[in-house]
Structures are given as structure tokens and as C-alpha cells.
């Protein structure tokens, strides 16, 4: 118990150092810390929980094997996400997975209330639009919006300069913005959501 608490207090870099020195159990702590985030990220690309788990597993094994290449310039998380994104991309290229089945999208939605159905439809449209983005733009968007990463971290994950990461994110956002403005279902949804969004939208309309 004491040992577990000690492990919790250590930074990722300290744990990496311990693994390098032969303490395999420290890697177990790194897995515990990052498996949720990595699974969430993989599911955004793979759409299938089982395949996403494979990506996570593969990413952890690769990171373990290549641990000596990690220099600590960026965070361990960014480095790990970089490996996961590359693994996901390779898997998509190899197998050309397509899990965007309507049934899959509706799996997590109870089809009873009408409101829930509208919600599911909007969610589906948004997901489709995000999936239609080019891989780099989608990666930048996912990391920024859902993983709350800084552009410096995104640049590390995407292995590109800071400006490129930012440009990819902005392009993705611009494309989605156009969709939001053009699709009637999404406009209706914005009205349904009301409250904060509607208030702001009205203010923008007044300003413009």
C-alpha cells in the first residue's frame, strides 16, 4: 500500500527512469495513468472498442520497447500519444476500418425520448463531419478540443512544427463552422439547446 502511494507521487519522468533501470513495475503505474486517455483517443480514430484496445496495447508495448529513445524533451504523455496516433493511422491504412455504421452510432442511445433521438442525430452529424476531415486536421482537432492539449503538445504528438499544428486545427475548425452554419439540423439543434448558445448567437448577429 505504501509502495503504491509512493508510485502515485512520482512524475512520469521519474517512473520512466526507474523502468530504464530495470524496474518493470513502474511501467505498470504509467499504464494505469494513461490507459483511459489513450483508449479515448484511440476510440476517436478506430470507432470500435476492441480495435481501440488493440491500439492502446500496441502503443504501450512500442513505448516500452522504445523507452530509451524517449529523451524527456516533451512530456511522456505527448510522446505516448504520438505513438498511439501513429499506430492508429497505420491500422487504418492497413485494414481500412470503417465502423461508421448507423447501428453502431445508435448503440449508446436509448431510443425512447424524442429529445434523445434529436441529440443522437446531431451527435451523428457532428461525428460524421469530424470523421470526414483529413487525418492531420482531425488529429489536431481531437487533441485540442477533446484532450485539451496545448499547440506545443499537439506539435509533439503530430511530429510537426507548432504553426503547422495550429494551422491544421484552424482548418478543421473552419470546415466544421461552415457545416454548422449550413446544415439545418444543426441550426435547429442550436435553437433547441438555447440558453447560453442562443444568447451568444443573438449577440453575434447583432454585432454583425
Amino acid at each position: 500500500m505504501q509502495r503504491e502511494t509512493d508510485q502515485n507521487l512520482k512524475t512520469d519522468i521519474q517512473l520512466v527512469e526507474e523502468v530504464r533501470n530495470g524496474l518493470r513495475s513502474s511501467f505498470s503505474e504509467l499504464v494505469k495513468r494513461h490507459q483511459r486517455g489513450l483508449l479515448r483517443l484511440s476510440m476517436r480514430f478506430m470507432k470500435d472498442a476492441d480495435v481501440a484496445q488493440d491500439v492502446v496495447q500496441e502503443a504501450f508495448i512500442k513505448s516500452y520497447e522504445k523507452l530509451n529513445l524517449f529523451e524527456g524533451r516533451a512530456s511522456f504523455k505527448s510522446w505516448l500519444y504520438q505513438i498511439a496516433v501513429n499506430t492508429a493511422r497505420n491500422k487504418l491504412r492497413e485494414n481500412r476500418y470503417d465502423f461508421s455504421d448507423i447501428e453502431d452510432v445508435h448503440l449508446s442511445v436509448s431510443a425512447t425520448a424524442e429529445k434523445v433521438l434529436v441529440h443522437a442525430a446531431v451527435s451523428e452529424i457532428i461525428q460524421t463531419e469530424v470523421d470526414r476531415l483529413p487525418f492531420k486536421q482531425k488529429t489536431a482537432l481531437v487533441l485540442r478540443v477533446y484532450e485539451d492539449m496545448s499547440f506545443a503538445e499537439i506539435a509533439v504528438v503530430m511530429e510537426c512544427p507548432y504553426d503547422t499544428a495550429k494551422a491544421n486545427y484552424r482548418h478543421a475548425l473552419m470546415k466544421l463552422k461552415e457545416t454548422f452554419e449550413n446544415q439545418s439540423e444543426l441550426r435547429k439543434w442550436t435553437e433547441d439547446v438555447g440558453g447560453f448558445f442562443m444568447e451568444l448567437n443573438t449577440k453575434f448577429a447583432e454585432v454583425e
Partner: peptide
Amino acid sequence: KLRAEDPIELPMDEDFFDNLHKKIMLSV
């Protein structure tokens, strides 16, 4: 909006992550 409509639902079950952890560590 995007965050509010996030379609990804992670399993909340602790057992799921324990199993995933075991699986990963076995490979490691």
C-alpha cells in the same frame, strides 16, 4: 458544442480497466 456532443463513451467500469491493464502488462 463539440464537447457537449462528444460521442465517445468510455466504460466506467473499473474492472474493464483492470483487465485492460493486466492484458497490457502481460504483453509488456
